[in-house]
Nucleic acid binder design. Structure first.
Lengths: 218, 218
DNA sequence: CTTGATAATGAGTGATTACTCACTTATTAT
DNA sequence: ATAATAAGTGAGTAATCACTCATTATCAAG
């Protein structure tokens, strides 16, 4: 279990410990409300040690954000998404969507602390948004466009919506499900997660309006 | 133009000025990174005056959050939503959805600074989430259930999805559109907002899958 | 105008915080 | 074993911040 997504990389042991501790503390209290002494204690190092690896407190945050964007834009997100979407072969739309959803939900669970820090900073700082946009949104849009084109070609997806709408619709639903699970966990009762995802895909594919034809539930 | 939603209410002039300034500052830099002296300067009062109206800095935030929840759960959100949803009469689903969407988008625009503060706090504090849930989610779910029941009765909406899914699908799409406009404003080009909303409603109603029947675009 | 009460002020204060640096400990080379 | 270098430490510091309070301004009533 690599909760933080900081394994593998060639980061010095101590620096990694500090970053992991910082993600934990920042994610619990927010950046400004967190203190360097707290991070030091949590990382099991002296406060001075922190400043051997990071010039300032802001630098720790920068380190986390760069990492978060790398993880999110790297193999853990885009690559696996691309893999699912390009290895379409004979799979139908429902199967592909379910793969994407289950994949993304697992990811969102494991990366949640990091994403919370990233999300908060993105809410307040244009440069973070710009990095997010360039590294994730642009790439995701490219993949979505390709996916859409192939699915239209196979006659499985509408051709009268563009890929921006498509990506937004999918991501909005994933985000809503994650938000419901993470923000209002336990409050909105969910009987069965598998069934929940199936229903969501159904709504995503066929909408909320009453269908007159009998072409659903393929 | 009442950007903050603090008009009408019976709040002393000075207190309102302080709250408005605090919303502005908190929304720009986040609660912890904002200072009381900054708020005082922006409100045009002495720093000491703030503490005649609010015992602590946390109390200012509390005041804002209470206000935000009141506004969001009060006439500006739930009431207008209820009005649209209950005065269905002969309107079709598309018209109703469009009314809801346009309504909510205008609202999100005007209340954005307040919502940003609320959202950030909700990300980090369980009690804020609880207040949001009890005052907004529960009430919205009640309205959604009623709306769904009536729409099913009219044969305009699917009866095999529950109202939780319905509300989530609608809110997710609204949130995604707002997020795109506010967070990535200008980055993702949008040709025409009216057309954008129409397409979104279409996707919401009929989904992304290719339809075989010819019952769309009613 | 005088008086009493209330509202507003901003210099001052104790607490907290990010960051430094003189010193200690660990590691490596010879 | 010893020297040289690097890594780690934590008490100390200057700056900042939320909050206080003695003083001043504003206002109302007689």
């Amino acid at each position: 279990m690599d909760i933080w997504g900081l394994s593998g990389e060639d980061i010095p042991e101590k620096e990694r410990r500090i970053l992991e501790a910082a993600i934990k503390i920042f994610s619990e209290k927010g950046y400004s409300a967190s203190t360097t002494s707290e991070i030091a204690k949590s990382a099991g190092v002296a406060e001075g040690t922190i400043f051997r690896y990071f010039k300032t407190k802001k630098d720790i945050l920068r380190g986390i954000l760069i990492h978060a964007v790398n993880i999110l834009s790297g193999r853990l997100v885009i690559d696996s998404l691309e893999k699912i979407m390009t290895r379409l072969e004979e799979k139908d739309l429902r199967t592909v969507l379910k793969q994407i959803l289950v994949d993304r939900l697992k990811l969102a669970d494991s990366l949640f602390p990091m994403v919370r820090v990233l999300l908060t900073e993105a809410l307040y700082h244009e440069d973070v948004r710009e990095a997010l946009y360039q590294n994730i949104v642009v790439r995701a849009l490219t993949i979505a466009e390709k996916f859409h084109r192939e699915m239209v070609q196979k006659g499985m997806m509408r051709d009268d919506i563009d890929h921006v709408m498509l990506l937004r619709a999918i991501m909005a639903n994933v985000a809503a499900l994650v938000a419901q699970r993470k923000i209002f966990e336990g409050k909105i009762e969910v009987n069965d997660m598998g069934k929940e995802i199936d229903t969501m895909i159904d709504v995503l594919m066929y909408g909320i309006a009453k269908q007159t034809g009998e072409d659903k539930k393929g």
